[in-house]
Write a protein that binds this DNA or RNA. Structure first.
Lengths: 137, 137
DNA sequence: CTACCTGCAAATTATTTGCGCCATC
DNA sequence: GATGGCGCAAATAATTTGCAGGTAG
């Protein structure tokens, strides 16, 4: 599903691979949820405590500016990051538990292109978040 | 299009209408763009400089918690607010100019409900942002 | 009247940055 | 070995809050 790793893309982009960057990238790569910077910092330190939080901030910013990561904001004041190159997906947020579920829907993508065209734009990207409650049945 | 004013909804919610709140609400009501708190503060002060920025922050938070305003975050680190009760619409953001265009599309709403259902959720709300470049032609 | 609101400034929280030392290419 | 990265702590930026006095209902 995700054939080219973040690290490979970094090299391709001419980003120097240091020990701390390697570690942060590894943590990002294996995170299925959406950790904020504080949480990335904790997870990286649990593996090897040679990373400062300043470096985590610098790294995610660098990777975001290079287009390797996407920044997400779920209206809680903190930024979250995820691999920008993975198969495109959107987010469903459980408003009771805060849990974030990813999903893909092709129909949505098609309609979005249609809308952008209607408004005289070329679509470059999008962000869709659904907020819902689990239905018992 | 928008029959019940923000102020009326505040009264209904039991929110005390003070001079500063009245003013902030008035500014919100007549803003067609998406001002951040700093900008709301400036606009309110241009009318009557009896409002502090702390009160603007307190007011938008209060109205957000009461469900009268929705908070928006366009990935620039600042929060923006808009009337939560207006006819539902989404946002198209011009990545060159930063301009924000609102649009409505019924088809999108229908599909979103379908997706939520598929995932076992009842849809409570959503946020869709398209990012695009104006196409010359 | 009384509970609630406001301004001010200090406190918090998230994020960025200057600087001297250190590591990658 | 030179260029760029790192940790630390201080600087910013956005937002929240304690307190003493003011105001809406």
């Amino acid at each position: 599903m995700n054939n080219i790793t973040i690290e490979e893309r970094c090299k391709k982009a001419g980003i120097r691979i240091t020990g701390q960057r390697k570690l942060i990238i590894e943590v990002l790569q294996k995170s299925n949820d959406h950790p904020d910077v504080e949480e990335l910092f904790k997870r990286a330190n649990a593996i090897d405590n040679k990373v400062s939080i300043a470096t985590v901030y610098r790294t995610v910013r660098l990777l975001q500016d290079t287009g390797i990561l996407s920044r997400l904001e779920f209206n809680d004041g903190k930024s979250r990051f995820e691999d920008a190159v993975r198969e495109h997906h959107d987010h469903l947020i459980d408003i009771d538990s805060g849990e974030v579920i990813e999903f893909v829907d092709n129909e949505i993508e098609k309609i979005q292109n249609k809308i952008a065209e209607r408004l005289g734009f070329d679509l470059v990207g999008h962000k869709l978040e659904l907020y819902g409650k689990r239905n018992e049945k």
